[in-house]
Design a protein around this nucleic acid. Structure first.
Length: 668
DNA sequence: CAGTGAGCGAGCTTCCGCTTGACTT
């Protein structure tokens, strides 16, 4: 009997099917040993020797593996082929250290495979190797550095700001992004500008039937780009344009090819599900887990856009059969993984089988599956072909010569867009992103240089420059991934952490920093700017790569970080003043004492209102955010409340007189 | 599907990354 240990139970089931009798396959369920939760667990005086303990809840799992190992002829450590997987293999070897199997001292071998196919596994079993200690040390360095940052800075926050707070290489940068964006928005001054649109048609003269109307936008005045700052300027131009003569100038046509997007990674799946389905990263991962366990999709925690050859082949067959040769590119599309820090232990997220789910509707699992299915099939289809037309229109006024521009777009071939076009997806959720300036494109009537035009209508519009958009889950995950901070398994938990700590709040899907978030961010950035620099993780990854390559030793890398950090830590704990977090005020005067302000405080059950003069004045009231909707039963305000268990729901402010309530947000 | 709560200061909190259930707060 041979024993194989993998990380995921779903993977172990698949392997059992391939290998049959003679192999016992167990899943470690991720890491089995780690630094202790309640202690620092790193000896900073003696080369950072870590004190590893069996992870909480893994005691039974460890025993099961140890027992199975004693009975095994051969032991294969088949954890994922990446830094964390190598470390898990090392910890597995450590829990079997000194054990004997069938009376002989135990031998284990390390095998890796990137595809879960029978062939890949048989190949791997033929050429087993040993654990790569350089890679293990890179993981160990990462782990210990994160422990040092997290477990030294969090207590500093308890003493200097408030108990229970936390800091970390990843979470603090996530908060920083949100805080800095908020400050950009605060200091943003909107600038007025005007755009002038003209509706024109070809002048046919006499009693000819009307030719179609199209829209053009004013772009130039006397050969220079036009900038209209206020209404007076706009009106002056409008007056002149009303009496101008219009004629078609240059007509430019260009064809462009639009390639399909790459197949999903964890990050892009979370972003797309957020934008199209309105889901949180957490929900997306829960639903994806279900699909993975049913064998419908490949592994859902991945940073790779690679596809198994076999998958590309069945996808191409499918496209040929369902859409015809026209939709099939000559050769398969290959996607390069964009993230520099990618570990590439898994494939992209794709369906395991294309015959399922073509006509799926309703149900969370089915909705997510459909998205994954379409994105995968589309990624192997032919590009879309678009013909763009740009027409310059000369308008000769009494004093000035103006140029207007009309743009049209015609789809010559839809290609992959037949399946996965953004605009065609009616589930698309309106995002608060800056979509300004994306005028809907229209088809233009056929026009030739020199054609005379007549003006149908002129439409000046007042606009203002827009501040940058606040982060939502999708854009925050994208920002973190672009910075190389966090991993597929941590994007969703990181968002939960910064919300739980009340560093940020989510309103209408957008993140706002709280006063606490501002305070913690400013404190940490004042004293430890290098650790929370956007480049810190990228530099760390370079060091870890060198450790993994054997070019560097891990202890000096950590030593070089730790010594100056520790010095700074000691001085800050002595010198830094305690930070007072500002309470939020509502701007109202206390109804009890008529002296204090009504402030929003945070208690065991969340936010509540009280008087700023507490404990002198004991006024309290529940904090209930209004939603702007009216109760359908009695016309009162609809308010957002929480049940005892903390679940949010919508109810009427006239409760208990009116008992209207709903789980879902009311609509107009 | 519903009305609480802070302060005081004993004993507690906390990181990132890998993987899923076991459960009533």
């Amino acid at each position: 009997m041979n024993l194989i240990i993998v990380e995921s139970p779903t993977k172990s089931k698949t392997l059992s099917k391939f290998l049959g009798e003679g192999y016992k396959i167990l899943a470690s369920m991720g890491h089995i040993r780690d630094l202790p939760e309640r202690k620092f667990g790193v000896d900073t005086k003696a080369d950072f020797v870590p004190d590893y303990v069996i992870s909480k809840g893994k005691e039974e799992k460890v025993k099961e593996i140890q027992e199975a190992a004693k009975k095994a002829d051969k032991i294969y450590l088949a954890t994922d082929p990446d830094r964390e997987g190598e470390a898990i293999a090392y910890h597995l070897s450590a829990i079997m250290q000194g054990q004997k199997s069938k009376g002989k001292s135990q031998k284990y071998e390390r095998i890796t495979f990137h595809e879960i196919t029978k062939q890949a596994i048989e190949e791997a079993l033929k050429k087993p190797g040993s654990i790569n200690m350089d890679l293990v040390n890179a993981q160990q360095a990462r782990r210990i550095l994160d422990r040092i940052v997290g477990y030294k800075l969090s207590p500093l926050l308890w003493y200097k700001i408030r108990k229970g707070l936390s800091a970390g290489r990843v979470q603090t940068v996530a908060v920083r992004l949100i805080v800095e964006r908020e400050r950009e928005i605060e200091k943003f001054v909107p600038k007025e500008y005007w755009q002038i649109f003209a509706q024109l048609r070809k002048f046919l003269g006499g009693k000819m039937p009307d030719s179609p109307v199209f829209t053009a936008i004013l772009t130039k005045k006397n050969g220079n780009k036009i900038e209209i700052e206020n209404q007076i300027q706009a009106e002056e131009i409008v007056e002149e344009l009303k009496k101008a003569d219009y004629e078609v100038g240059e007509v430019e046509k260009k064809e462009s090819r639009r390639s399909p997007p790459a197949p999903f990674t964890t990050s892009t799946l979370q972003q797309t599900a957020s934008n199209r389905l309105g889901w949180s990263a957490k929900k997306t991962m829960q639903v994806a887990q279900g699909l993975y366990e049913q064998g419908l999709i490949t592994y859902h925690r991945t940073d790779s856009t690679n596809l198994a050859l076999e998958a590309i082949n069945f996808c191409r067959e499918f496209i040929k059969k369902e859409f015809g040769e026209n939709y099939l590119p000559e050769s398969p599309r290959v996607y390069k993984t964009k993230a520099k820090v990618a570990q590439e232990a898994h494939e992209a997220i794709r369906p395991t089988n294309l015959e399922m789910g073509k006509e799926m509707g309703g149900g969370d699992g089915e909705r997510l599956f459909e998205l994954i299915w379409k994105r995968f099939v589309a990624c192997q289809m032919k590009e879309a072909l678009v013909e763009e037309t740009i027409i310059d229109i000369n308008a000769v006024g009494q004093q000035n010569i103006f140029v207007l521009e009309a743009r049209g777009e015609a789809e010559k071939f839809n290609g992959w867009k037949i399946l996965y076009d953004k605009a065609k997806n009616n589930e698309e959720i309106e995002n608060n992103g800056n979509k300004e300036g994306e005028e809907p494109l229209e088809l233009l009537p056929p026009l030739l240089k020199g054609d005379a035009l007549e003006l149908e209508k002129i439409d000046p519009q007042q606009k203002f420059t827009q501040p940058p958009a606040r982060f939502n889950e999708a854009s925050l995950i994208k920002a973190l991934e672009d910075l190389g901070i966090g991993r597929p398994s941590t994007y969703a938990p990181t968002i939960s952490t910064i919300l739980d700590r009340m560093y940020v709040e989510k309103k209408e899907k957008n993140f706002f920093p709280t006063n606490l978030g501002f305070a913690v961010n400013d404190f940490l950035l004042e004293y430890f700017p290098d650790i929370f620099d956007y480049q810190f993780t990228a530099n760390l990854e370079d060091d870890l790569d060198e450790i993994a390559n054997g070019q560097k030793q891990w202890v000096p890398v950590i030593r070089e970080f730790f010594d100056p950090f520790n010095k700074k830590l000691n001085s800050v704990s002595k010198v830094a003043e305690r930070v007072a977090v500002e309470t939020e005020t509502t701007g109202e005067t206390c109804p009890t004492c008529k002296e204090g302000q009504v402030v929003i405080r945070v208690g065991r059950f969340g936010k509540f209102l009280s008087c700023s003069r507490f404990p002198k004045c004991k006024y309290t009231a529940p904090y209930i955010p209004k939603t702007g909707f009216k109760c359908p039963k009695c016309g009162g305000d609809v308010v957002h409340k929480k049940t005892k268990k903390g679940k949010g729901f919508y109810g009427c402010s006239n409760y208990p007189k009116c008992d209207w309530a709903s789980w879902r947000k009311p609509t107009k």
